[in-house]
Write a protein that binds this DNA or RNA. Structure first.
Length: 331
RNA sequence: GGUCGAGUAGCUCAGUCGGCAGAGCACACGCCUGAAAAGCGUGGGGUCACCGGAUCGACGCCGGUCCCGGCCA
């Protein structure tokens, strides 16, 4: 794969499942002197500013860290880390705001542009695969047509999904053939785009299965599953100890109605269920652990398809084990 | 000790009249274009507690053993 040689401004992506330590690795990258291919000191007039070691800025690529006030459960970077290294993509909206990919993409692309303009280097911390893809592989993402969507969703409640799928097949056979006839979510969206835009859904770019060479250095942190499972369990208990339940009640106080998207956050929905009497606290915590483990597997499955990712096997200490490898990748 | 009920997939449990062993969850694998911490699909898995018996044929019927739970002593 003919990826361009990294320059000192090539963005770095550190990705991996939840609890893999990618935020720590990003912070370490940003705060430790790393070997760079460019001469740094001596004030040689190398020209074009190559003599400067770029400063780092972090772009958090995470669908839940965008919500203000959802800190503990999303493992959001601390105030201290954010004071030491500029962070982007955090605290974009309140939990009553219905947030979606396109909104993130706009913020992310703007942030990347600003970072380059400052001659700084971006470190993307990737947890949400789709969000990350819209940054590394800018795509022609169709718009949204809420009225069309609402109508389709209303129909999907009463009509067999097979009929709606057949309708999509008539308008866009290719798209219809690419999705399970039972996947209401995807079928409704594809139809929404066909009807709303007047163009076949499948005409919007090659989709997610193309992985062209791209000017990002992407490293993935890979753990053995049982080890990661243990880390997840420990982290969930740590979050509870840090006051996750209080965070949830406080947040409910300020925002009685969370958006559909914010409501999905792991650790939050289960505790809300508990507060509503649907589960004991122990049950809720056990559910958080289970679902977070399953989520981590889904993240792995998403990321491991991307042939451009260079995997680093981590056994114990993400920072100590990943940094040297990343250093060699950058030189 | 007596008595009643139970023992089937990793877990919780269905299994009609004796005729190829089932579900949900978990787990593995795949998919993913404005909900993505969401959503959808596929798959592997069994000494039917154990021993014996009757039967062409037993998870099921008969006898015994073990184990768990309730009740009575």
């Amino acid at each position: 794969m003919a990826t361009p040689a990294p320059s000192s401004l090539t963005p770095i992506v550190v990705l991996g499942p939840t609890a893999s330590g990618k935020s720590d690795v990003a912070m370490a990258l940003a705060t430790t002197p790393t070997p760079t291919p460019t001469p740094t000191n001596f004030g040689t007039s190398a020209g074009l500013g190559t003599g400067v070691v770029p400063k780092f800025e972090v772009v958090a690529v995470d669908a839940m860290q965008v919500y203000r006030g959802m800190d503990i459960g999303t493992a959001k970077p601390t105030e201290h880390d954010r004071a030491v290294v500029p962070h982007h993509g955090l605290d974009l909206v309140d939990p009553d705001h219905d947030f979606a990919v396109a909104e993130f993409t706009a913020v992310g692309i703007a942030a990347l542009g600003d970072i380059v303009a400052r001659r700084h280097r971006a470190v993307l911390v990737g947890g949400t695969g789709l969000y990350l893809r819209t940054l590394t592989d800018p795509m022609d993402m169709p718009g949204s047509w809420p009225e069309v969507r609402a109508e389709l969703e209303r129909r999907a409640e009463v009509e067999p999904i097979a009929e709606i799928h057949a309708e999509l097949a008539a308008l866009d056979p290719l798209a219809a053939s690419r999705m399970e006839p039972s996947n209401t979510r995807r079928i409704v969206r594809a139809l929404e785009v066909c009807i709303g835009s007047g163009r076949p859904f499948s005409s919007f770019g090659p989709g997610l299965q193309a992985y062209p060479p791209v000017e990002f250095v992407q490293v993935g942190l890979r753990w053995e599953r049982p080890v990661l499972a243990r880390r997840i369990e420990q982290r969930v208990h740590r979050m509870m100890g840090e006051g996750l339940l209080d965070e949830v009640t406080g947040l409910l106080d300020r925002f009685p109605h969370w958006s559909r998207t914010a409501r999905q956050a792991l650790g939050y929905k289960e505790l809300v269920d508990h507060l509503e009497g649907e589960a004991s606290l122990d049950e809720a915590v056990a559910t958080i652990v289970l679902r977070t483990r399953q989520f981590a597997v889904r993240q792995e499955r998403w990321f491991r398809r991307d042939p451009r990712v260079q995997w680093i096997d981590i056994h114990d200490d993400p920072v100590a084990e990943a940094l040297p490898v990343i250093g060699t990748l950058l030189s």
